[in-house]
Design a protein around this nucleic acid. Structure first.
Lengths: 325, 325
DNA sequence: CTGAAAGCGCTAACAT
DNA sequence: ATGTTAGCGCTTTCAG
């Protein structure tokens, strides 16, 4: 591979001139710049990432700790990751994938200067990784909202508002008794932040609207239908359900169609996913790609030492399908 | 952050001794080693990744180009990625995520020495990235099987054998007319290698078994059920279906349960996913995590200059659910 | 068994 | 507007 010295020689200039042509950090005469640029193309030169990083003290790589745990919605995770990568690339950053849910990987990446900054997904309410992050001096952003006073910048979808929105919408449609079919029990047991906030918002929204709302963890797959059956048989007055569980939604939707008096059904899921499900009267989108992009952009501002609000939440929007069929 | 010089000073040895203690590349007296190791712990020293990479010429990072495209099965992708990361970490490699389906990212990562090796997922039959990879001298492995003579090492699940296996199993169960409900049309139009091979194997298997088999692209979601309805209404003799479409499977399965004379149904999907679907008589697992691990291990052998077979296929296994309920 | 020192390829002062 | 050069923190000869 060609080095910067080769380019300099080919262009008949000094090494630093080549460097400055590339970085644009000082004025270069048109003529010189063109000669250098041509040499770069001719030699098909790419600066050596490690050399650059060693000299400059930053390597244009961010670390992303993604869950890949059972029970998480694969589409949501993938879209978030896609959003992160897209936004990162737009700032010329690359993304290093750190899995495992321990702080160990974060620490390793930070201390060896593998990454300039860290992004952590799937944060639990009381997540041990937070302490780890606080002890590092690598800028970090959490996707999720842990307990109130955390020194790390957070971004997320506003699950609490989404829960409240769903409740008020169902009340508006005239329902008096409604149910939330949410994440699997295993997710809730991990105290995953979004599950908690969604049910809180839903409960509060029901209260505000003066209707009765119950919350039910929901297994993935066909078993979910029996949860629904139980709810309906225990209380025939439940006339609408709000589903937030990607792996259960298709089964629930199909099952609802076979019922004599089917409950009305609204869902919280990526629009792209919900659109493949029939029988939903309203959707609330999980803007996962945008969330990933927001996280990356926030991280980037942090890297650049710009001001950043400690918590940013993406507001939910109702997408009514009524009359769409 | 502490540097190797700090450690050397603290331990009262030279820099090179510290380096050799860490790499184990030359004999060190027990006493010296212990002193150095203690200093490392005391100072909480982590070698600077870029410095190491610059000096050694390799950085223990592999690049993974994952699709994140519409129509791919999110669970499969995530499991493959998880397998790659797990196996890579077991060899002390990290994984850099390159998205986009162009060769550009691969080239950039290779030429700037960002990565030691490349892993490319979701390979199409005639994929432009192959030419790119062949022009680089970075070791590479494809997950997928493009056209016959490609100079890049490939690994994949044996979709062709899986298709044949499904066909022969259905014949064995007494069916004379069967249908494959496969990937969405958009995936097939990309000439995605696995879709092609699955149908080929299925068709061949049907022929061998002397039964009639048809192949149908299948949209994601609830629309898939109308594909099934069309198949069945066009030919009432179709008595069994073989489904390979994660996003359609739950809908199809639920729909089948409502039919007067439901066809028998077998599926190709990750076992973990299929288990959430009711009504399947047999499963064929897509061992996605193992596939990712295999890919990473193959890449590692390539990096280490060990012999590597140009094509490795994971064999399918039938997992009968009959009588399991 | 251990040290000294020459790079690895680049950035960013410090010259002029 | 351009050139010279001292590092960045490590690996690895070469010397002992």
């Amino acid at each position: 591979m060609a080095t910067i010295a080769d380019v300099a020689k080919a262009a008949g200039v000094s090494i630093s001139t080549v460097s400055y042509v590339m970085s644009g950090k000082r004025a270069i005469s048109r003529e010189t710049r063109e000669r250098v640029e041509e040499a770069i193309v001719q030699l098909s030169f790419s600066p050596h990432a490690s050399a650059r990083s060693l000299a400059s003290g930053s390597n244009s790589v961010i670390g992303l700790q993604a869950p890949l745990r059972p029970g998480v919605d694969a589409h949501v995770v993938m879209e978030i990751v896609a959003g992160v990568v897209r936004e990162a690339r737009s700032h010329f950053y690359d993304v290093l994938l750190l899995t495992g849910d321990e702080g160990e990987g974060l620490e390793r990446a930070s201390k060896s200067s593998l990454v300039d900054a860290l992004l952590v997904m799937d944060v639990a309410y009381d997540d041990p990784r937070i302490k780890t992050l606080e002890s590092l001096r690598t800028p970090a952003v959490l996707i999720g909202v842990p307990s109130e006073d955390v020194a790390i910048t957070c971004v997320d979808f506003d699950f609490e508002a989404a829960g409240a929105l769903a409740a008020s919408r169902l009340a508006e449609l005239g329902h008096r008794k409604v149910a939330l079919l949410g994440a699997p029990a295993e997710v809730i047991e991990r105290h995953t932040s979004y599950a908690k906030r969604l049910s809180r918002g839903f409960a509060r929204g029901c209260e505000t609207a003066g209707i009765a709302g119950s919350v039910h963890p929901c297994p993935a797959g066909a078993e979910a239908t029996s949860v629904l059956d139980t709810i309906l048989s225990n209380d025939a007055d439940v006339s609408a359900i709000f589903v937030h569980n990607e792996a259960a939604l298709p089964h629930i939707a199909s099952h609802v169609e076979t019922l004599a008096s089917p409950p009305q059904m609204i869902a919280l899921a990526p629009n792209e996913f919900s659109r493949n499900v029939s029988g939903l009267s309203d959707l609330i989108d999980i803007p996962a790609e945008r969330l990933g992009a927001l996280a990356a952009e926030t991280l980037w501002r942090l890297i650049e030492d710009r001001e950043v609000s400690p918590l940013t939440l993406l507001k939910p929007h109702l997408n009514s399908q009524l009359g769409a069929a």
